[in-house]
């Protein structure tokens, strides 16, 4: 198992770099509502500020997403986690891992960082109770050595939230 830390990952391919540059440009012109990209010189890791949507359980709360891009992005999904403290949500683990199918099995290269962000805010917005997943403690314990959520075998059982 390889560590997911930024330094050990392979550099972006040419096509990934090109696409991310364009995504970033598009983001700057037209960012998804409620999200702010924190400017860094690292194209391979984006830190994104998320504002809970007004009128939802997460209104006035601010979270941070960390998006790491693999060498073969967008053919491979980016790794998207909340930097703790993560929102209290039935599908978000306290270590920041997000149980959301489009980040894993259902990823498609036609998706973008922007569309992922919209999915995440929609997932937050439809939540009706602020609580951790039932298996939070067990899962987080299993991930203690810095395992990537992309190595988790996710079960996507609940499409209500």
């Amino acid at each position: 198992m390889t560590s997911p830390s930024a330094s050990s990952r392979k550099a972006l391919s040419k096509i990934a770099t090109n696409r991310l540059q364009k995504e970033l440009m598009e983001w700057q012109v037209n960012p998804p509502a409620g999200f702010k990209h924190k400017v860094t010189d690292n194209l391979q890791r984006w830190i994104i500020e998320v504002n809970g949507a007004p009128g939802t359980l997460y209104a006035n709360e601010v979270f941070q997403l960390q998006v790491d891009f693999p060498e073969h992005y967008p053919m491979e999904a980016p790794q998207v986690v909340f930097i703790p403290p993560a929102p209290l949500h039935p599908h978000i683990y306290s270590n920041g891992h997000i149980c959301l199918d489009i980040l894993y099995d259902s990823w498609s290269p036609a998706m973008t960082v922007s569309s992922v962000c919209i999915s995440i805010v929609s997932m937050l917005s439809s939540s009706t109770s602020k609580q951790r997943p039932a298996d939070d403690e067990r899962y987080v314990k299993n991930c203690r050595n810095g395992r990537s959520p992309k190595e988790t075998r996710w079960w996507f059982h609940d499409d209500k939230v």
Binding site: I15, N18, R19, K22, E23, P74, P109, A110
Partner: peptide
């Protein structure tokens, strides 16, 4: 092409 110079279509995957 990196930019849309004239009558080109963008591929939604590679953005070229």
């Amino acid at each position: 092409d990196d930019d849309c110079t004239c009558d080109l279509e963008e591929c939604p995957i590679c953005f070229l």
